[in-house]
Structure formats: C-alpha cells, structure tokens
Amino acid sequence: MSATLEGPTTTDEFIKGLWKENPVFVQVLGMCPTLAVTNSAINALAMGLATMVVLVMSNAVISLLRKFIPKQVRIASYILIIASFVTAVEYVIQAVSLDLHKALGAFISLIVVNCVILGRAEAFASKNDLVKSLADGAGMGLGFTFALFLLGAVREVLGSGSLFGVAVLPASFQPWVIMILPSGGFFTLGSWLLFFNYLSKRKARKAALATAEVAS
C-alpha cells in the first residue's frame, strides 16, 4: 500500500464513508429505506447489511467492467448490475429469515433505487480500481448501516421501550408510539441532523476562536 503523494490511500477511502462523508448524515442520500424500515434496531441493521452487500458487490463488478461499459449506456448498465445483486440478496434473506423478509417487504427490492448505490457507482467505482472500490463500498455501506442503526435504536427505545426486542426501560415508561410511526422517522432523522449541525458549528467556532487568538 504505497501511497502516492496526491490521492488518498485505500484506507482513507474506507474511512471517509464512516463519518466524514457518511451517506445518510452528511450526504443525506438514500432517505427512503433510511426512514421506512428503521422502526426497530434489528430491521435497521438488516437493511443496512443488505444494502452494504449490494453496494460492495456492485462496486466491485462495476469497477472491473469500467473499461468495457460505453459511456452512453453506463447508467442503464449500472442499474442492471445493481438489480441483479438485489434480486440475489432478496432470495437469500427469504431463505434465511422469513420474518425479516416480511418485515422489510418491498423495501428489499427498493434497494435498487437507493441513490447511495448508484451514486457510488457513478462517482467512485467507475473511476477507480477494484481494491479502492471495494474499500469505498465497504466504508459507505458501514456508514449507512451505522446511521440506520442510530435511527432504529432511538426509535425502538423511545417507541417501544426496548432494544433488539429486549426491554431496556422500566415498565413504568410510557412508550412514545409516535416514534415508530412514520412521522417519528422524520423527527428522529431531523433531530440527529440538528445535533450534528450543532457539533460542526461548535467546532467551526472553536477553530475560528483559536486562529483569532493566534493572530492577536
């Protein structure tokens, strides 16, 4: 892994998806599955992992084929590749856990139109080699899973007083039913974004203060 002077290393490509360019919290992509299936932590994790598998596989194949796919039909080709993997993943989930398949429903098929996947194919895998594309896919996928888990966990704890189906709050806690309803999804994501906005604003102010002190 000899890093050239310019250009990030493979490790950088992996790490950026986790936080700095997190697909949900920073790029705000792939909203539909993000909000639709995060009413419990387990659904959120399953969705995140399924998306990650598709993302890594499609990134790999697209990266390998990037020299062969003509520019004019690239989007159509990407979608075909992604759809094949999604179909495979859907059958695997159905084979492994029928309950999960029922809970996620049509949203497994809808991974195809998750803009995160097509976005990475277009912005990254079509321009980079196999190893980097794999790292990028894994990083983005993990970041996506992490964000979904944060949402799912908050919504499940507040909405049903449990986490992964195990009660974590005292029985006297009155569950906020709204959190597992659709509007709870919007509110939870909105609140996380507010929180991260606040953190980054604070950091920017601190940095500004530090430079001002140095200058004076």
Binding site: V28, I178, L181, P182, S183, G184, G185, F186, F187, L189, G190, S191, L193, L194, N197
Partner: peptide
C-alpha cells in the same frame, strides 16, 4: 436546511 425540512415533513406526516 435539511434538518428543518425533515421536522416539517414529520409534522405533515403526523
């Protein structure tokens, strides 16, 4: 920005 829009959407959904 997007955070405000999400909260508005949540109220609409409600």
């Amino acid at each position: 920005g997007i955070a405000l829009n999400l909260i508005i959407a949540g109220m609409l959904a409600m």
